[in-house]
Design a protein around this nucleic acid. Sequence first.
DNA 1: GCCGTTTTCGGCCCGACTGTTTTCAGTCG
Length: 586
Amino acid sequence: MNNGQIAEVFENIAGLLEMQGEKVFTIRAYQRAARTIERLPSELEDMVREEKDLKEIPGIGKAISEKIAELVNTNELAYYDRLKAEFPEGILDLMQIPGLGPKTTRRLWKELDVTSVESLEESIKDGRLASLPRLGKKTAENIARQISFARTKSQRMPIARAMPIATRIIEALRSRCPGIQQIQYAGSLRRYEETIGDIDLVCTSGSPQEVLDALVALPNVVDVLGHGDTKASVYLSDRIQIDLRVVDDRHYGSLMQYFTGNLQHNIQLRDHANSLGLSLNEYGLTHVDDGKLEEFADEESLYERLGLQYVPPELRTGVWEIPAALEHRIPGLVEIADIKGDLHDHTDWSDGRDPMEVMVAAAIDRGLQYLAITDHSVGRGIANGLSIERLSEHMKMVRDLDDRNPGIRLLCGTEMDIRADGTLDYPDSVLQELDWVVASVHSAMGQDRQTMTERIIAAMRNPYVDVVGHLTTRLIGERQPIEADFDAIFKAALETGTAMEINASPERLDLKDSHIARAREIGVPLVINTDAHTEESLDNVHYGIAMARRGWCEPHHIVNTLELPEFLEFLDTPKSERMKVFLRHA
DNA sequence: GCCGTTTTCGGCCCGACTGTTTTCAGTCG
């Protein structure tokens, strides 16, 4: 049973306990455990097998660690089964409908025998729901509306879709509201979660009502979910919800902190504030004894006032970062400016859109010191992969462009298929002519875990394979990742001196954050690549940087933060010796 | 259920909005 499945069990336990009226702190403990487990860099299965003490994980104590062990060892949990037996099947689905919490869901079940979305709809139609005490016509209408939303609303959307929508809304509000002082996205978008549930915007303005009114009046708003004095929520035709909060400029820091979250981070931060005799909310810090309010115009001063190192948004998961910030152990995370080269880029020689010259000019524009042109290998017929003959011409063109562009070092490269049997698309005699070889899985992605693991490690054992591209081949929200023993692959990477790619293409984000953290722990050299197929997608590097930051990476974990001379030294060293070079320059 | 430079027992984040209410419960983030 993998971490995602275990987390789901605890999430469900929390939901059922809520409906049972269990103590709120017990519920919260299960929710916290579920969230933490989702983000663990290592599989609990492995940790149990290696007899690691799970209680060292924050929020996991005796009871939950025993339940994890039972789940891992037997694939079942007696406690969970007993709990489930007390409720009708599918009741948790009802509680997923916005507006239906544990109390209401339980009443609908007990008083109206509603246990499914279908029977819920009937109870709305025939007026039974509205006739219950403390419910009413308006509530019934709202629930009916939420049901129809639930049918059309997309699940959490990939960050690549949410980011441009957020930017458009911000621009629209700016142009309509002269009173706006500051406006920015917060929430999961600012934390660079790979998927986004809704878009949270924070704003300061001399006239809050103007901004809130402007939001609900935007042309692509199809419904208003809330519209008060300081916040409003709307539903867009893009099938996404926008939450906007407006306060005065002098509260911007605490508002931004509050609205960036995540929930667990905020709970821990507020808990810590309490220990100092302070109470934290979105307006600032209140002294518990005399009620005096301290205000914060920026986040940095807020964290500092609490005696904490500043926590970058990408780290705010509520798992490890608050204790680290207290002890000033937050590392100096990698930034865009640290990236000196891009080592995975396509041109119109294969499936890229732009000619090589255009890509090179774009790379120079962005201040890169080196660029690897890595068009597809012959196996990718569909991507116009290069035959050995075309590859030879391709190399000539790269060398020629390199001569004519002294501002950048161009590398002859390939993105070469790792075939289903672990053999490679070009023979060694060809590979040794190339400067940089990205090896990727593009086919037979459904292989079983062991076959896939052996296939990838076999490729890594080739002395000319420099890096494994987009390891899991997932497309967020579209294609599941491969099944493989990632720990074994990372260990093989360290052993062979093969780098692992952090693919910054926002549809992929592959490696993902927890894998990055694990690879970093093991000591694998990492490379942040855009996999650009157009000149503008070179700008996607910020997504890769964010994933690396979420994996707590510093510049010295990332190979392509090396300056050109150091990188060339790395490149000129045989793979088996490369780790030494990497560590020396790190 | 978890956790401890106050604590192994007694705490546990905080406020906005809505609907159905005359003072607040439920839900959400």
